[in-house]
Design a binder for these strands. Structure first.
Lengths: 208, 208
DNA sequence: AGAAATATTTTTGTATACATTTTTATTTTT
DNA sequence: AAAAATAAAAATGTATACAAAAATATTTCT
């Protein structure tokens, strides 16, 4: 696994303190490489929103914030509905089966946060890809990546797994029935519901 | 000006061929620095969507494509409306004056594409910033940055300057009248109109 | 001749060393 | 004692050198 992914993992698993600047030498020792690949990783992670600037030259793991969680789910709701709309008429049995298969894997226990996040994205991507809109899909993928940082709360304190599973099935069912309007509306609700739940929870917390 | 910005400029001014891989040594000679800062620049430009992968390890300037132009304007329409909605009730005379001042500068002749792109974004940002939604704003800013790559067409072949100016004034007027619904609807139209025009134009072109 | 395999060249990736900048600590001044 | 200025340190930024990988050219085989 490359350095970038390792740093992502460590951010997700709270192995890297938030708010304090990340030191390149420290990281290079931690991951057993020189500073150059560390710099590379930090640069792209910053560009992708995984890290934020600290002072004039440093970067840090940004604190989790309800506002960010809310923004991410609002944006996802808008843009994923757009994508589903564009994809809808092209979704065939093939894509539905693919999504169903992924949904089944998501139901398993013992998945890491990252695995869960990736599977969840693959589920949606299976439906969106036939829209054939690379730019839109790339942006939405980025937002989903970002959202993974908050996944720990959704699958941890908030018992979300079962409901999420159910909603995935419901979505597929609506698509199969060619009920475009209802499917898009449901997707929006699916994303926004999770966002509202998460946002409320984070607002209530004091220490993070 | 830093390397990253210089490369952006050269992309905008078609100084770097599209579709062919960018060679790090070539760029380092061109800009008179070693490969390290070049690599840094390429990495973040790739993460920001200014460059796309080429082969297994290289990057290239991606071809312009009507689909990307359309996606960018669709996304901007959705997300900027969201931002304006959140900002609306907090927009005071101060922000309106700020926007008006920027709008005046935009009317001048002899601005470079980048200057024009930045001013246009500053205009919108003057209104959005009171929404106080850093994440949403960051993403929208990225989309606007992307859109700059297509600005040459809007201000070149398509005579867009005058109309854009007029639309900016109209938007400010609607906000001043506290007509939230109309203002948001108008903003959406403003963004989508430009997008449709641009997309149609690009679809008609063969060689780019 | 065309495809597969191999060798060559080119290019990217990484480490180390040094320069520059930023941050922190110390000293000086009011 | 607080603020400003200065000095020390620690950190980032960049260059050069080398290693690994990728792309290209060449050779070999069918």
């Amino acid at each position: 696994m490359d350095i970038k992914q390792q740093i992502k993992d460590d951010i997700l698993n709270n192995k890297l303190a938030r708010g304090v600047p990340l030191r390149q030498v420290e990281l290079s020792q931690r991951y057993g490489v020189s500073r150059i690949p560390i710099r590379d990783a930090l640069l792209s992670l910053k560009a992708e929103g995984w890290l934020s600037p600290h002072g004039k030259a440093g970067v840090m793991v940004p604190a989790l914030h309800w506002k960010e969680a809310e923004d991410l789910s609002l944006m996802r709701a808008e843009l994923e509905c757009l994508l589903l709309d564009m994809a809808f008429d092209r979704i065939s049995e093939k894509e539905l089966n693919e999504a169903k298969f992924i949904s089944l894997q998501l139901d398993k226990e013992g998945l890491s946060l990252i695995e869960r996040g990736e599977l969840n994205w693959h589920f949606h991507q299976a439906l969106y890809k036939v829209a054939d809109r690379p730019t839109l899909q790339r942006v939405v993928e980025g937002l989903n990546q970002q959202a993974v940082r908050y996944l720990g709360f959704q699958y941890g304190p908030l018992g979300y797994r079962a409901e999420s599973q159910h909603q995935h099935e419901e979505l597929l069912s609506l698509i199969q029935k060619k009920n475009k309007y209802a499917a898009i509306k449901f997707l929006r609700q699916h994303i926004e519901d999770a966002g509202v739940l998460l946002t409320k929870y984070l607002k209530g917390m004091t220490d993070f």
